[in-house]
């Protein structure tokens, strides 16, 4: 086929394309991922029994707010990475801010705690479950986010995969916070961040394979 014939072919018939569709699909992936993760929490884990009291504690909202902020920062970042030639700029570093803030809180908490209490602050009572639960809860959103990213046109496949993982991991962690009894910043700084980063790493690993176009 000659190039002129290819151009004729491509330009024939309906050629309209909605430039907002891909961004909508990406947003829908986040919303559906949040619904799936919340339903999974309700069915498989249950809300934490003391949710009514916990809702009065600032740290409960701090925890949910931290992971929700990560998801909200990953949303526009993913849209940029999905558009060829769009620069991520400062937005690329934005997800680091809540993490650094949490780590600062965690170091402050560890510094003011007695040495023999520090291990308990980091490990809590559920450290073995937490990151695994976050990864599992993230998986439906992860599949949706990777598919939505594949419908855009990322040129940095590893970064795009990582951000799809970051988005779904943060959503899974937000849902998990409805179940999770832990309230100590050092626990969150290690296990929540670890769970979310594991999903982001999975995305970075798969990105170059599944996001090619």
């Amino acid at each position: 086929m000659k190039t002129d014939e290819l151009i004729d072919l491509l330009a024939r018939g309906p050629v309209a394309a909605d430039p907002r569709a891909a961004g909508r699909t990406w947003g829908m992936a986040a919303a559906l991922g949040a619904v799936c993760a919340t339903v999974l929490v309700l069915l498989a884990l249950g809300l934490r029994p003391d949710l009514a009291q916990a809702a009065h504690a600032p740290m409960f909202w701090g925890k949910a707010g931290f992971v929700a902020a990560l998801a909200l920062l990953a949303l526009p970042l993913g849209r940029r990475l999905g558009r060829p030639g769009a620069r991520a700029g400062l937005l690329a570093w934005a997800p680091a801010l809540p993490v650094l803030a949490l780590w600062a809180l965690a170091f402050a908490a560890l510094g003011s705690a007695a040495p023999q209490e520090r291990a308990a602050l980091v490990l809590g009572t559920t450290w073995a479950v937490c990151p695994v639960a976050i990864v599992v809860l993230s998986l439906p959103g992860f599949v949706l986010a990777m598919r939505a990213m594949a419908r855009m046109a990322p040129t940095r496949l590893r970064a795009a995969g990582a951000v799809a993982g970051l988005l779904s991991g943060a959503i899974g962690a937000t849902a998990y916070s409805l179940h999770c009894p832990e309230m100590a910043a050092p626990f969150l700084a290690v296990w929540y961040v670890g769970g979310v980063l594991a999903v982001a790493a999975l995305g970075a690993l798969l990105g170059p394979r599944v996001l090619r176009w």
């Binding site: 430039p19 891909a22 999905g82 558009r83 030639g85 769009a86 176009w213």
Partner: peptide
């Protein structure tokens, strides 16, 4: 990928990146 072009952005970086 023509749906990923955002009319508010310049065209050259988009085409160049592709």
């Amino acid at each position: 990928q023509r749906h990923t072009y955002d009319a508010a952005q310049p065209l050259t970086p988009w085409v160049h990146a592709i």
